[in-house]
């Protein structure tokens, strides 16, 4: 069976894009105090799967972020530092 007949994991999908990932994260979210975060929603709705729930703790990695802005608007603004990557870094779409 070809790998194309099974669902891809998010990493396999993101790997198809062109990236120039900044060494500095452009989004930061506190790991210590997760009160008030919409954890399940972040884990399911971030299109790049940057948020992972392990038990009831959220883990975040900015590398695959496609800069959609969803997490910014569903997280209390004092719980997230959200900016665009600078210098043209991040994802570069060729098709879409």
């Amino acid at each position: 069976m070809s790998t194309l007949e099974k669902p891809f994991k998010i990493e396999d999908l993101l790997q198809r894009n062109i990236w120039d990932v900044d060494e500095e994260p452009h989004i930061e979210i506190p790991l210590d105090d997760q009160e008030g975060l919409k954890k399940k929603a972040l884990a399911l709705l971030c299109p790049a799967g940057c948020y992972t729930l392990i038990g009831d703790r959220l883990i975040f990695s900015y590398e695959g972020c496609v800069e959609c802005g969803l997490c910014r608007i569903i997280t209390p603004s004092d719980k997230i530092r959200w900016t665009y990557p600078r210098s043209g870094k991040g994802v570069t779409y060729r098709y879409t």
Partner: peptide
């Protein structure tokens, strides 16, 4: 079984 050549998201 066409290959996926790009994936992304947007609001």
């Amino acid at each position: 079984d066409a290959d996926v050549v790009e994936y992304g998201g947007h609001l």
